[in-house]
Design a protein around this nucleic acid. Structure first.
Lengths: 137, 137
DNA sequence: CTAGTTGCAAAGAGTTTGCATGGCG
DNA sequence: CGCCATGCAAACTCTTTGCAACTAG
């Protein structure tokens, strides 16, 4: 539970990037790209290893939103609770929408109360056609 | 909607395997292993390509249950009218539940009216923990 | 005969591991 | 100085693509 943990520049950069992007999902390659587009450099291996550590320590959350782009990570902001909303994914253009409304929360409750099933919002994605793509037809 | 489709032995083997395992989710490598443990042989490439086609034609459904083991596929049983209801998939035991209640239909409408997004029920799976697995803890 | 199909080999994408070097404390 | 961290190269897994040979209709 308390993995010896030296302070290094690389770790600081990665963790800061998460904190600055509390509301976004970040992939490992997002992080690598961001770092290398700045002045600093952090190896891909280090990113993965530190990500793993952050997940195990409960600092960030890992999930699998999209088939293609691999794992997503997000800072666990106690104030924001991004795990309490749903995601809509357009099967045409691929856009991902975060949807956070009270209706969806009551869906959770309905499924729990009437079907005995506890939805894991961080894993769940609703697929369909978004407004833009629907209008194009 | 009508992709020219020659009948071949390989396709028959794969589709039959799905039909014989309606209640299970199969990975691409499950299929390859099964086939090669029998008398026949089907190339991995062919499996992936046909899987893709089956998904696009609505014959099977594609899931992403597990981070490590890649995509899962399952036969869509017409008797269950899977396009008209939602699916709950337990991330622990893998069970798939068909959930057909008016509440879920109004969810469709809500998402459409308030978020301009048309949900495709045949592609959408809600992930979480089922009653049985929840009780075990 | 023609267009779809097959499957090997190779390419890709994402992630992990081996190992020698480097840095925190 | 000891031990953890870093990062390059290479290995791995799952999946896709190029391409030439093959086959259903």
């Amino acid at each position: 539970m308390r993995p010896s943990d030296y302070k290094t520049k690389q770790k600081e950069i990665i963790l800061n990037f998460f904190i600055q992007n509390k509301n976004r999902h970040l992939t490992a390659s997002d992080i690598v790209k961001y770092i290398n587009s700045n002045e600093e450099t952090v190896g891909t291996t280090t990113v993965y290893r530190y990500l793993d550590k952050l997940v195990n320590n409960g600092i960030i959350r890992k999930y699998f939103l999209d088939e293609k782009s691999g794992a997503c990570y997000q800072y666990i902001d106690e104030n924001h609770k991004c795990n309490e909303h749903f995601h809509l994914k357009c099967i045409q253009c691929g856009a991902l929408f975060h949807i956070d409304c009270s209706y969806m929360q009551s869906l959770d409750e309905h499924i729990m109360n009437h079907h005995g099933f506890k939805i894991d919002n961080s894993r769940t994605v609703l697929y369909g056609i978004c407004k833009n793509c629907g209008n194009k037809k």
